[in-house]
């Protein structure tokens, strides 16, 4: 890998990381510093010199960012928790199997061993696996800066292609997921882009008594909740009928691997599959 020149630091505390992130000439973050949180997307971009940050602040040695725990009915996952750790966590598998299923679908073993949940949501790739499930789970992200912390829903956090609500100087600290009280069933169905391992289309479904939550990735410029599908399901429609509207009004992505029309079509197929499987998993 021959990237452009950059400075690298590996702070040992969150405070130091925030200081370094806000290390511009006037003490404020200026966008020339990037957080390294696994690097499974950033490093390939730097390799091609499509990204050329002046400074990288690596969070791997910052303590207190790698954990999975349950507190008062909420699952807390530290930003530096790897996909493999989520995929293999007994707690996640038992209490939030959709997230484990999504994590297991990411890239390949090597990527899952290094990539992190905080890095994935902050990068906001429109074809990433996590966002569909996080949307269906109504998850939130907690952001931290020198000014303090704030929490917002993942839905509000994801603004557009590779664009989030992160302000300069902010770091994703954790992802939180409210755990089910009822017996909702969940499933993630994904058509894999064979080269990259990203989703051509991925649909996460979470269906309980009287409610349905559907997250979609790969189809549009950002992952989103398909509220039209949710409403049909909540109104008693069957899986196929509800899934059929998933791409309505969506400006679908188009590339070598799937044209916009084909993506719309397979979105309906995968939505129906996710919905059927989620229903079969209700308990």
């Amino acid at each position: 890998m021959i990237p452009q020149n950059f400075e690298y630091s590996s702070p040992r505390s969150l405070e130091a990381a925030l200081d370094q992130l806000a290390g511009g000439p006037d003490g404020s973050a200026d966008g020339s510093t990037k957080i390294l949180a696994g690097g499974m997307s950033l490093i390939p971009l730097m390799k091609l010199r499509l990204a050329a940050p002046e400074r990288l602040v690596d969070l791997r040695r910052v303590p207190g960012l790698n954990y999975i725990r349950e507190e008062s009915g909420v699952l807390h996952i530290g930003a530096m928790t790897t996909h493999y750790e989520v995929e293999s966590s007994a707690l996640v598998r038992a209490k939030c199997p959709l997230l484990a299923e999504a994590a297991a679908n990411i890239g390949d073993v090597q990527v899952r061993n290094v990539g992190t949940i905080g890095g994935s949501v902050a990068h906001a790739d429109p074809a990433a696996d996590y966002p569909a499930s996080l949307l269906a789970l109504e998850a939130s992200v907690t952001l931290v800066s020198k000014a303090g912390e704030r929490t917002m829903s993942v839905e509000d956090f994801l603004v557009d292609t590779m664009t989030t609500a992160l302000e300069p100087g902010e770091i994703v600290r954790e992802v939180t997921v409210p755990l089910e009280k009822s017996g909702a069933g969940t499933a993630y169905a994904k058509m894999v882009q064979p080269a990259s391992g990203f989703a051509i289309v991925g649909v996460a479904a979470r269906i309980g008594e009287g409610f349905a939550r559907i997250g979609v990735t790969g189809l549009a410029s950002k992952a989103y909740r398909a509220r039209n599908v949710e409403a049909l399901l909540e109104g008693g429609a069957d899986a196929a009928t509800a899934a059929a509207v998933i791409a309505e009004g969506v400006d679908a992505n188009s590339d070598l691997h799937a044209s916009a029309d084909y993506r719309r079509h397979v979105a309906t197929v995968y939505a129906a599959r996710a919905i059927r499987q989620a229903i079969s998993r209700k308990y």
Binding site: L48, P194, A195, S196, L256
Partner: peptide, 15 residues
């Protein structure tokens, strides 16, 4: 336009 392994799909063991 398939000038990267992100777009050029060589077979992987799992495939």
């Amino acid at each position: 336009i398939t000038g990267e392994l992100m777009d050029y799909a060589v077979p992987k063991a799992t495939m």
